[in-house]
Nucleic acid binder design. Structure first.
Lengths: 144, 144
DNA sequence: AGCCTTTCGTCAGAGAATCTGACGAAATTT
DNA sequence: AAATTTCGTCAGATTCTCTGACGAAAGGCT
């Protein structure tokens, strides 16, 4: 029978596969001092930078935890914080030099994995998958 | 534009939504002493029971961590351990009485969420989603 | 039989990640 | 101006996870 496995687990399996592969290959490429938790925050940083609270909400953790992880990312040179010109209380977390290199390296790995998935599923179904997930985001993304 | 967001994150968003909702509603139903980490191990337990090492591999954690979590699940009455008749070193982790009730309650919530998703996507596309994810599992499930 | 070697689970200890609660500073509202 | 809210941090505790080492049992190999 065509799998009575619940849809949640069905989503988690490929996610985990991608995450662990990106993580491994990044480590092999010299970015071996970043942890998965740090990476999950890091990957949410937008081009213009984000406030700490935004990152926390998007990553689904408290702002204290996000602050803890950003401190480490900053010490490792992946990000830096700049004052928020619009709000004296806040600072913006921005991708730094080393972070930009990591982003680039990660994008290469992600592209390769997506290509493998496309090869397995066919371009048409890969596009359907992304389309459907995008639609699902409308009712499942607390941040969208 | 149709989202250049990477497919991994696209998978994670609905997963997290489902996980957190199941978790919340389970807590509201009286299963409020279980943690997400415990639940991620618990949900892998098969009808006949599993060895600790199996659970660890499936959950992607070390056997020590799995042991730690199963100890707690056992203390809370969700599971129990029985000797493995085929191997004197091993024991089987089995779902206990209270665990079975939690499984039942979780299944109800999962079914409701899947119904919501189906209502949003349409039955046809929901089926496509599950079909495609099932296929993707062939190359992404280290356990399958 | 008797010895490796591997596998299963646990113990011990350390480290990482997360949370709750409380706080000062700045922004916003009244 | 004062009260309220929001932003980030500090402090402390808990939870989760890992590495390393170990005894017990199983399986292989002379």
């Amino acid at each position: 029978m065509p799998s009575e496995i619940n849809t949640g687990l069905l989503l988690l399996i490929p996610y985990r596969s991608m995450e662990s592969r990106v993580f491994e290959e990044l480590a092999a490429a010299g970015f071996d001092d970043i942890t998965p938790s740090q990476a999950r925050v890091f990957q949410r940083i937008a081009p213009g930078g984000n406030r700490l609270g935004d990152l926390a909400r998007q990553a689904g953790i408290t702002k204290q935890s996000a602050g803890f992880l950003v401190d480490q990312l900053e010490a490792l040179g992946y990000v830096h914080r700049v004052p928020d010109p619009d709000d004296g209380r806040a600072r913006l977390v921005r991708v730094g030099e080393r972070g930009a290199l990591a982003v680039e390296a990660a994008a290469v790995v992600v592209a390769r994995i997506e290509a493998e998935w496309t090869a397995h599923l066919g371009a048409r179904r890969m596009a359907q998958l992304r389309q459907i997930l995008g639609d699902l985001r409308e009712i499942t993304d607390p941040w969208a």
